[in-house]
Write a protein that binds this DNA or RNA. Structure first.
Lengths: 208, 208
DNA sequence: ATCTATTTTAAATAGTTGTTTAAACTTTGG
DNA sequence: CCAAAGTTTAAACAACTATTTAAAATAGAT
């Protein structure tokens, strides 16, 4: 047992600041000096506690990911026994809520990794996206059934997936109108209806 | 008139390499040394021709943007006189084709700007996204009519928008299956049908 | 109160970055 | 062929980066 344990508080401060800085500036853009300033600690402590910037990045992502995954389960909290349409709703609701949470830095870090991968998270960062696609694939498959071509099912999953992961906040920042903000609940309802209409259209052979 | 004009070829080589490097590594991650190596020129020429890295970045984006906007017009090549559903199809087709073109670096640069803005393109980089949303807003508005609430129309535009701009290539790179690739034509057809089904669902009051 | 493991600090370090400099080289009009 | 405008190069430069080092400070058990 360690004689002192005030280092734990320091580790947490670093982790929180690092997640925020890396989310905003990316891995290469976020400096250890900036993280040190944001957390009010000496930069040397980053090497002391985390060995280096790369390992801190990895820890910060894991920190953000664990928190988000616990708060917003990718399956929406419904198991495989639930009806497929209920599952689909749960998945969409959880995904959108997860990406609407202003305290969740996981989204922004993932977006950075997507646009310019660092290689540091190569073994893990696909998880967040892959998990969502997997459960979506299952729910959509159960709704459409085996009568619909694999290709069409893939496309449907991709479309619903894209509505779930779009970074609304960042896109809205580009627009001139910051007054308007999307209400997550409204958007969940809309995306679910939109998706169900699309799936139903596929099932009934499309608009002729 | 300049006595020599072989500098123009050098400028082009730099611009092409810069667009590629910035697209893959982002502004902060892409070094002038890397751009110099990729274009086979001396790094000092970047300062000589473009004044510095920031101005080169701006030029590279403009280079990529102009090319993409010319090749894939945001309105799909149809003017306001065309029927709204035809326009919607044209917009979707052009947007997806634009983002499926492997030679087009504009997408990746925009994605980087979205996730960690540099401030260098603040006055222009919203254009690409904003243009797409504007024409989508018009087409969706004409299809739904004034009987549908503004909020609902916004949500529909956002959903269609998200299906158009999702970075398929990057996401697929994360997946374990690189064998499968989406055919742009198939995806255009699917997204159009999916979108139309969603809009129709809104028009008819939704699935009761 | 003292001792010691632990934590924090300031300074030094080595490497990388973008940029400047000054000289060498090349094209091209005369 | 000449000369000058334009182009390219290698080296030097200053600023910034992450990391290491060694000393100082601190908390907490004895």
């Amino acid at each position: 047992m360690p004689r002192r344990r005030d280092g734990e508080a320091t580790r947490d401060k670093i982790l929180t600041a690092a997640a925020e800085v890396f989310a905003c500036r990316g891995y290469r853009g976020g400096t250890v000096a900036e993280i040190a300033a944001a957390s009010g600690i000496n930069g040397a402590l980053i090497s002391y506690y985390y060995g280096g910037k790369a390992e801190l990045y990895r820890s910060a992502w894991d920190f953000a990911y664990q928190r988000a995954a616990g708060k917003y389960p990718v399956d929406g909290g419904l198991d495989d026994a639930a009806p497929a349409v209920k599952r689909l709703h749960g998945i969409i609701a959880s995904a959108i809520a997860r990406r609407s949470d202003p305290e969740n830095r996981e989204n922004e870090i993932m977006l950075n990794e997507l646009s310019s991968p660092t290689g540091i998270l190569d073994d893990v960062h696909a998880r967040s996206f892959a998990d969502l696609r997997r459960v979506l694939r299952k729910a959509v498959g159960d709704i459409l059934g085996s009568g619909i071509a694999e290709e069409e099912q893939r496309l449907a999953v991709l479309s619903i997936f894209s509505m779930c992961i779009i970074p609304v906040k960042q896109i809205q920042k580009l627009e001139g109108n910051p007054a308007y903000v999307y209400q997550p609940e409204e958007r969940i309802r809309h995306v679910y209806n939109f998706a169900m209409a699309g799936l139903l259209d596929i099932l009934t052979g499309g608009v002729k």
